[in-house]
């Protein structure tokens, strides 16, 4: 197959025949053991089976599920689509009022959390605060994160502010959400602060500014868009979280939910669910729009410094080797989960 003047590039005379004896590089490598991987999978499987039996589930219940979904689904749909006479219109306004109360609870809760989270975020950022402070603040934050909202509500806020919709209940719910938001908000903000570009920090330190000036002019412009995005995420999470507090007596949509479910009034249940879905999706859309605006520029916060283009260039990390992939889960995503 070799042509007389094979154009095979400089320094390529006899490529087809190996010129050296075979060595280790030419031998196929032994297959690495997959024992650990297989054991891990086996463990997950065993845990799953143990959990299935441990939970004591009754699979017979699943058989009836489709039937009851259809049955009750029809009842709910009938409730949603029935002609809105005075009583039904009353159901709708009652649902919207309750849902808006939930939004208000979530907003106040997020504000309370946000208020504390910014200073605590700075104290919990390794590049901003001394080691002892850092350790103590981090520990306190992780304890706060471990406590579910309902515990704050039951133990402190409900007795402090009272129960019921419209009365003290809503405030109690908001405060419980606020306190439990502090943990995650501060943690996410501290991570954002730790990821700031060190260049502006260095230059402002070099030009003799003190800690406060450095924070104001070198750190805040960089992190503020991300911080606002984190607050908004938490607002979305808090709307959902406020529901469970409502069931406990903290007002909002949760209180209404437990009332209508308690009475098994399926038409009202349908209405409440539709209202929840509509309002939540609307708030999510608005919040996502603002978040996008804040992070990717636009007029909003035009003085907020360069928005971070990409999550990948999150500061100098030891594994900035282009061949090594960093965690592909974008930071924004982790915040989205409202960790």
């Amino acid at each position: 197959m070799s042509t007389p003047n094979l154009n095979a590039g400089p320094g390529s005379t006899s490529q087809t025949k190996p010129r050296f004896a075979e060595d280790a590089l030419d031998r196929r490598p032994v297959r690495p053991s997959k024992l650990r991987y297989n054991l891990g999978m086996l463990a997950v499987g065993i845990i799953f089976i143990a959990a299935v039996s441990g939970a004591g589930m009754d699979f017979g219940a699943l058989l009836n599920l489709p039937a009851s979904i259809i049955q009750y689904g029809q009842l709910m749909a009938a409730g949603v689509f029935q002609a809105p006479d005075a009583t039904v219109a009353g159901y709708w306004t009652q649902s919207f009022d309750a849902m808006f109360e939930s939004v208000a609870i979530a907003w106040v809760g997020t504000m309370v959390g946000a208020l504390f989270s910014l200073p605590l975020g700075f104290l919990a950022a390794r590049n901003m605060s001394p080691l002892p402070v850092y350790i103590v603040v981090r520990f306190v934050l992780s304890v706060i994160r471990a406590v579910p909202e309902i515990i704050f509500a039951i133990a402190i806020m409900l007795p402090l502010f009272g129960f019921g919709s419209g009365g003290g209940g809503a405030l109690a719910g908001a405060m419980a959400l606020g306190v439990s938001s502090i943990g995650t908000l501060s943690k996410l903000i501290s991570e954002a602060i730790e990821a700031v570009d060190g260049g502006p920090l260095e230059s402002s330190r070099a030009s003799g500014s003190n800690q406060m000036q450095m924070i104001r002019w070198a750190v805040m412009p960089q992190v503020m868009p991300e911080v606002i995005a984190i607050w908004l995420y938490r607002f979305e999470v808090n709307i959902r979280a406020s529901a469970i507090l409502g069931v406990l007596g903290a007002g909002g949509i949760g209180a209404l939910l437990s009332t209508v479910f308690g009475a098994r009034e399926w038409d009202r249940i349908g209405i409440v669910l539709v209202v929840i879905i509509v309002v939540t999706m609307l708030v999510d859309q608005i919040s996502a729009f603002i978040r996008h605006r804040v992070i990717h520029g636009g007029d909003l916060r035009s003085d907020g410094g360069e928005p971070q283009e990409d999550d990948d260039d999150a500061g100098p990390s030891p594994e900035n080797d282009p061949r090594v992939e960093t965690d592909p889960a974008p930071q924004e995503n982790r915040a989205a989960a409202g960790l």
């Binding site: 280790a24 590089l25 030419d26 031998r27 196929r28 490598p29 690495p32 061949r323 992939e325």
Partner: peptide, 12 residues
């Protein structure tokens, strides 16, 4: 000519 790398991660 890189059969010896067969079980390595491509990133390396």
């Amino acid at each position: 000519g890189i059969v010896d790398k067969a079980y390595m991660r491509a990133a390396s």
